Computed example of a mutant assay.
Amino acid sequence: MSELFYNAAPNATRVAPPLPEPRRYPTQKPAQVYLFGTCVIDLFFPSAGLDAIRLLQREGIRVSFPQGQSCCGQPAYTSGYTEEAREVARAQLKLFAEDWPLVVPSGSCAGMIRHHYPELFKDEPETLAQVQALAERTYELAEFLLHVCRVELHDRGPAVKVALHTSCSARREMDTHLHGRALLAQLSQVERVEHDHESECCGFGGTFSVRMPDISGAMVLDKTRALKGSGAHQVVSADCGCLMNINGALEKQNEALRGQHLASFLWQRTGGVS
């Protein structure tokens, strides 16, 4: 809760903080973009990164993937290690120097770069302008496909019911649940089903799942129970950290239901062609 609400007198009128200005999107597709692959995709879901590249290339966009990229710094930042997070972020800044959009197949990592990098460097005016420029050209993958590429998807798969899961920060910082829903709605044979824990955390939370394993385990149990009860044949998410947690829990439960990254789902559903 904001400081405004804590400090208000008991009978004072409570005013909500102003909403951010709607994001303005380019009117034309760029010729080239950077892809920030994320450490989880690099280590555990490389196919999601490759499918993200394929989706972008199909739109006629050249994709640059700097090999030196690593973590965005979010685990250190959310654990209170601000200086360590700043050093990780500083290393990434050097890799994305050209004025190309930075596309991220993870809403939480995109949110870190777009919304928290400026906070990290607010006391370094010599770096802040570069950080703010990078933040302004950072897009989550589904957002970029929908609002910058303006994709028109043609479904070539069989009828299927899917449940969409978005990570907490992705939902609240980058609106990826809205972008994901809009892309899935373009697929004529895909029915997105609701589940009563859609807006709730799966229990991963990066280091939270390590520091609070019992609470994390209870949360993912609630999440998987809701997913199984939804009637979905498949789970789709734009964040691989959550997928790793959800799929691991489903495997332990000996369930056939599994989650897949949105990029891979879209690529496979559309047959790899436009």
Rank of each mutant, 00 (worst) to 15 (best):
E143C: 03
L184C: 13
H147D: 15
R171D: 14
A110R: 01
E173N: 11
F144V: 09
V160N: 08
G205I: 09
L134A: 01
S199F: 13
C168E: 02
C201W: 07
H195E: 11
E194V: 07
G180E: 14
F121C: 00
E194C: 09
L153D: 04
A185G: 12
S199R: 14
W100G: 09
P118L: 04
E143V: 07
C149T: 01
V193Q: 11
R172S: 15
E143P: 08
V148N: 12
C168N: 00
C109H: 13
V193D: 12
G107Y: 06
H115N: 05
S106Q: 06
E126W: 10
P158E: 09
V103C: 05
P118V: 00
T127P: 11
S199C: 13
E140P: 09
V131I: 07
R156C: 04
M174Y: 02
L128V: 11
A110W: 02
C109M: 13
P118W: 04
R171Q: 14
L128H: 10
E173Q: 12
T127K: 13
P118N: 08
R172L: 15
S106D: 08
M174G: 02
A182D: 02
Y117C: 09
C149Q: 06
E119K: 12
L134G: 01
A159C: 05
L102R: 05
F121K: 00
A182G: 00
G206Y: 09
S199D: 13
F144G: 08
T176L: 11
V151L: 02
Q186W: 04
L187H: 02
M174T: 02
E126G: 10
V131S: 04
C201E: 04
W100K: 11
F121W: 01
L184P: 11
C202W: 05
V104F: 00
H179Q: 11
Q130M: 07
C168K: 00
S199I: 14
A170S: 10
A110S: 08
E119Y: 14
L102F: 05
C109Y: 14
A182F: 05
C168V: 03
H115E: 02
Y139Q: 00
E126C: 09
A185D: 14
R172I: 12
G203Y: 03
L102I: 08
R171T: 15
H179M: 11
V131A: 03
P101M: 04
T138Q: 00
P118S: 08
V162E: 07
C168H: 00
V162T: 05
F204P: 09
T176G: 10
P105C: 10
E119D: 13
E152W: 15
R150E: 09
A159T: 04
T176C: 13
P125M: 02
E191R: 04
A170W: 07
H197T: 13
R150L: 05
L146C: 10
P125R: 02
G205T: 09
E198Q: 11
P118R: 07
E191S: 07
V131F: 06
E173C: 10
L120P: 00
A110G: 08
L153S: 03
Y117P: 08
V162G: 07
L184E: 15
L120T: 00
W100A: 12
H147S: 15
E194F: 13
H116N: 12
A129N: 15
E191T: 07
G203P: 01
H116Y: 12
C149E: 05
L141S: 05
Q186V: 03
V190R: 10
D175V: 13
V151G: 04
D99V: 01
